[in-house]
Write a protein that binds this DNA or RNA. Structure first.
Length: 723
RNA sequence: GCCGGGGUGGCGGAACUGGUAGACGCAGUGGACUCAAAAUCCACCGGUAGCAAUACCGUGCGAGUUCGACUCUCGCCCUCGGCACCA
């Protein structure tokens, strides 16, 4: 099936299902990111960023399947082999487009502090992802050469303990040194035979080979060997690291395996710590020794002193570094938004002029097994250069789909706009008050969307600094213990349940299963319970209504049982208001309503005031449940005698006077173990509570003849007698 | 490997700020109703001992802090998500 047809059919199916579930979306604002009416504006925006210099092209590593001749996603590389061909995957460098997200690293980091409505764990993950560090960038000499080797370190205090230097296999120095060295060549070749995913690189066995070259220590002038190591990442820092095996565990292990020197220069600052280099590196900060003029300084002092020394000697400078890398937006795929660039042999890469946008993605394509069909379509590729008019080739890469999802929320505000990306309505609606998304998006999507928001702000398209004021990260729905996903084929379609039980039951069941921020193993088995509960509610309301007119409620003339039920109604309302409004724990809100319903079923009071209390209870339950089960409560609200539709009603208000209780139950513990319960006046004083507690029969038994050392009272909850 | 979560009955989960562990629901067991079944209603439902009252044990494992720990601290195990081309 053609991708366009498949996508639109899926959208239609989902829209229909969401409508059947009764979600209150404004469908006039619907956008489909695969429609040219949508993606033309990100093409337009990209060309603006291009001219502004936010966009640039450089080569980057991809997974290359040499049999299928195609680029593979990390997900498609299984145990180092292509998922379809089974061929050993190679790393290959190809030119790609990047957005300078690192220019915004500081702002993206600092603004996290303002996002009070975000879960702390998501902010922490983003902070760690951005990974700001302060260190020193310095230049090691290379023995017998003019050029130098750039190295970034966050621990300049350990500089005097350097015993070797390691570079990435892709480092120019590595390939240079490999000439005439078969062993080194073979090692670099071996490193090419792995995927590009960080997880893969980080878990592989740490290996390296000596280049034979020597690096010259910037301070001592001593020569240390330069190794090529598979754990050094070309993409981070300068692709080279200084190694201090005495004070870094990875360097320590590498030095042990490869018989490299270990030189201790940091010693514990206090007797509480020990540095035993026979077993492990000493990675803490401490006091320098064997460090020449820096000996005796603390790590913090040495950081400054060594930084100053290098700066004065012109051999380095203090530098802030980020783990965050620029965002590669090129994909060698067909189904996506074409990158609006024309490659001219004379003028280079030229953005498509605004008048020629959008660059339409052809839909009349034949999709075969390998590679993007765009790369074989001469009619799409052949064009003329907008600058010189000569013949030129259209870019065949498409955008990362995160590009689309990074600004759709803004487009919702002006989805019908045909002559621009956004208008002033974006400022009216944005930022989004409450954003809901899966926890799997905690870093990538949510960071790209924040970045895009700032880009749009700097282009004058909108005002807010941040796109989402409050964030609720949903846990994932798991099936068979793992994330549901199309590629795993373990998705669950609720359509069958909707057909059988109706939308309200499915909504209730879904909300009752677990709190929204927690992951959940999907199982149909609880659905019956949700269905039964709604039937019970229906029956209870209908039976009550069948009893005829209900007199007005007189709060002061109620029996104890009537009063007790009213107390429960308002206590439940208070709890549910908090659960729904503050905690978002809809499961406990539903459970509280179930408990209340169990109590209501026990009242069985046909008197006028009994029915009045029941009327209030039913109305409160129906109102509390109306956001969760809107259809059944809509009907019941009318049945309970109201003209107005329930969707127009406001949330009920707690009657504080109904919450007052004359006597309360306290748990009595002896040494922290529950030994009994006492019922006592709610306003009883300390002495009365102590007397009642220590007089309880089972408590007396446990105290026996031992002296009571103290009595702890937790108001409204418990009494602990300590003996 | 690194970053962030999670681990509580047969199952999903509750216990919100250190104060009654297992709310609520599912499954199960027993009973009522029925010719019967379904539906519905009632009771029981962590383990061990006991007729019971009750006692002891029990929140992944091991230590610790506290009158009191599912909750806090330290160390470990397992598991889920993310790791830049799944989106």
């Amino acid at each position: 099936m053609p991708p366009a047809q498949w996508t639109h059919e899926n959208i239609d199916y989902m829209r229909n299902q969401l409508k059947r579930l009764g979600f209150g979306y404004d469908w006039d604002r619907e956008v489909a990111t695969c429609d040219p009416e949508y993606y033309r504006w990100e093409q337009w925006f990209f060309t603006r960023l291009f001219r502004k210099g936010v966009v640039y092209k450089k080569t980057a590593m991809v997974n290359w399947d040499p049999v299928d001749n195609t680029v593979l996603a990390n997900e498609q590389v299984i145990d180092g082999r292509g998922w379809r061909s089974g061929a050993v995957v190679e790393r290959r460098e190809i030119p790609q487009w990047f957005l300078k997200i690192t220019d915004y690293a500081d702002e993206l980091l600092n603004d996290l502090d303002q996002l009070d409505g975000w879960p702390e764990q998501v902010r922490t993950m983003q902070r760690n992802w951005i990974g700001r560090s302060e260190g020193v960038e310095m230049h090691f000499g290379i023995a017998g050469r003019e050029e130098t080797l750039s190295i970034y370190t966050t621990r300049p205090d350990t500089l005097m303990g350097v015993t070797y230097v390691a570079v990435a296999p892709e480092h120019p120095l590595a390939s240079e040194a490999a000439a005439g060295k078969p062993e080194l060549q073979a090692f670099i070749e071996e490193c090419r035979n792995s995927g590009v995913a960080e997880a893969e690189l980080a878990t592989q066995e740490k290996k390296g080979v000596d280049t034979g070259l020597k690096a010259v220590h910037p301070i001592t002038g001593a020569e240390v060997p330069i190794w090529v190591a598979n754990f050094v990442l070309m993409a981070y820092g300068s692709g080279a690291v200084m190694s201090v095996p005495a004070h870094d565990q990875r360097d320590y292990e590498f030095a042990q395996t490869n018989d490299l020197a270990i030189k201790q220069v940091i010693h514990p600052a206090s007797d509480a710590q020990v540095a035993d280099l026979a077993t492990a590196a000493f990675v803490e900060k401490g006091v320098l020794q064997d460090s020449g003029e820096f000996s005796g300084l603390s790590s913090a002092q040495a950081f400054a002193a060594i930084g100053d020394w290098l700066e004065q000697a012109g051999k380095g400078a203090r530098q802030v570094n980020y783990r965050l890398r620029d965002w590669g937006v090129s994909r060698q795929r067909y189904w996506g938004c074409p990158i609006p660039v024309i490659n001219c042999p004379a003028c280079g890469a030229v953005p498509v002029p605004e008048a020629d946008l959008p660059v339409l993605l052809p839909t009349d394509v034949s999709v075969d097994a390998t590679g993007s069909p765009l790369k074989k379509m001469d009619a799409f590729i052949n064009t003329t250069c907008p600058e010189c008019g000569g013949s030129a080739a259209r870019e065949t890469d498409t955008f990362d789909t995160f590009f689309e999802s990074s600004w759709y929320f803004a487009r919702y505000a002006c989805a019908d706009k045909t002559d621009g990306m956004l208008d002033e309505r974006a400022n009216y609606w944005l930022p989004v008050d409450q954003y809901v998304g899966g926890i799997e998006h905690a870093v990538l999507h949510l960071l790209y969307a924040r970045f895009f928001n700032k880009l749009m702000r700097d282009e004058g398209l909108l005002d807010p600094d941040e796109p989402f004021t409050c964030l609720l990260t949903q846990g994932m729905v798991l099936k068979d213990g793992t994330k549901m996903s199309k590629s795993k084929g373990n998705t669950v379609d609720p359509q069958g349940l909707i057909d059988r039980y109706g939308a309200d039951t499915v909504r209730l069941f879904t909300m009752f299963a677990a709190p929204p921020d927690q992951s959940l193993e999907w199982a149909d088995s609880g659905v019956e319970g949700a269905y039964r509960f709604l039937k019970r509610l229906w029956k209870m309301a209908q039976q009550h209504v069948a009893g005829g007119a209900v007199p007005e409620l007189h709060k002061d003339g109620l029996t104890d049982r009537q009063q007790a039920l009213r107390q429960r109604v308002h206590a439940t309302l208070a709890k549910v208001s908090d659960d729904v409004g503050r905690r978002y724990t809809f499961n406990t809100a539903i459970a509280a309503n179930m408990e209340l319903m169990n109590e209501m079923g026990r009242l069985d009071d046909a008197s006028g005031q009994g029915r009045a209390v029941m009327q209030e209870a039913l109305e409160t339950v129906v109102l509390m449940l109306s956001p969760i089960v809107p259809h059944v409560t809509h009907v019941l609200w009318h049945a309970l005698g109201h003209e107005q539709a329930i969707i127009e009603c406001s949330w009920p208000v707690v009657d504080e006077s109904a919450l007052v209780q004359a006597s309360i139950e306290l748990v009595v513990q002896v040494n922290g173990k529950v030994r009994g319960r006492i019922s006592i006046a709610a306003d009883a004083g300390k002495a009365a509570i102590e007397a009642a507690a220590s007089g309880e029969e089972n408590v007396l038994k446990h105290i026996a003849d031992k002296p009571v050392r103290k009595i702890i009272i937790v108001p409204g909850k418990l009494v602990n007698v300590v003996i």
